[in-house]
Amino acid sequence: MAEIWVHVEDDQGSVAPITLEILSKARTLGVEVVGVALGAIASQAAKVGEYGATRVLADARPVYDEYFSQPAVEAIAALAYNRKPLAILFGGSYDGRDIACRVAARLGLGMAAFATDLSVEGEDLKVSVPIFGATQVAAKTFAGEKPHIVTIRPKAFAAESAGGGAPAVEEVSPELPETASRVKVLDRSVEEIEGPKLEEAQVVVTGGRGMGGPENFAMLQELAGLLGGAVGATRAVVDAGWMPYAMQVGQTGKTVKPNVYIAAGVSGAMQHTVGMKGSKNIISINKDEEAPIFKLSDLGIIGDVHKVVPQIIEAVKAKKG
């Protein structure tokens, strides 16, 4: 049976949601699913098994957490070169991308980025990659040596436990050259954000440049608070320093699929909509009736955010009593 490896990503000590999403899909492909867990996350092999891996290649050495990216590149390249799985799947996340690109370059392998679907026929892998702001989908196939390298867009698949038992854990310890530890991780800073996590919230209230300035995000915080949701931002907003990067929704930011997405003063550029068009319901407020965001909104309000958002807050408060 063909083998597909899934890189296990560490999200503050837990297996990252993106990894669980990828495992949930991989186990439906009729292949043997193998997790690759490097660093402290190697202790979470059981979780990786629960979501579909039958085996886990585990290496708990701390070097993977103390140094940036390259130890994982060296380890995965060495393991993959010897064992030649059909493919290695990585999260389309900051960490997954950095590792995947270098493994592909090291071994001269074909790589597809940000796939949203994949299928296996015999020894052939096919992936779907949205292009042009997800207005079109390209089907891609691979030539050249195995493994094929793929990163997966977050939220492309639902994370569902398979109720799988403990996987067979194989302790591995590939030789790491000295050059693997040239980039030191000095510290990790978490920008505390109140309320639910952006990626998990059922309501997301996003502000764009049309909010006019950072001070006006207070009303979006208030609205999100009333709805039990999270506040998001466009890249224009985070680049301007109004809000932290962790709040960015879109191609380079987070992918969200809430029940309700409210966009205030957001134009709807395709690099933004690619991260939110999977939302169940979209409500937008923009003073320009030609704004592209209206084309994908269930309810669009042509108006000034400074007037409309306070009105919504009042009406929501009235309903909540």
């Binding site: 001269g108 392998l109 074909g110 790589m111 597809a112 096919k126 949205p130 292009i131 997800a134 207005t135 079109q136 989908v137 390209a138 089907a139 891609k140 196939t141 691979f142 030539a143 050249g144 068009k277 979209i282 407020i285 009736e289 209206f294 084309k295 994908l296 909104s297 269930d298 309810l299 669009g300 309000i301 042509i302 108006g303 000034d304 007037k307 409309v308 009105q311």
Partner: peptide, 21 residues
């Protein structure tokens, strides 16, 4: 090493109602 086998339009959202405030 990656070949594009085909391109299809993605399913598009239907626009809903757009109303002036």
């Amino acid at each position: 090493l990656v070949k594009v086998a085909g391109v299809e339009p993605a399913p598009e959202r239907q626009a809903g109602e757009v109303i002036p405030d």
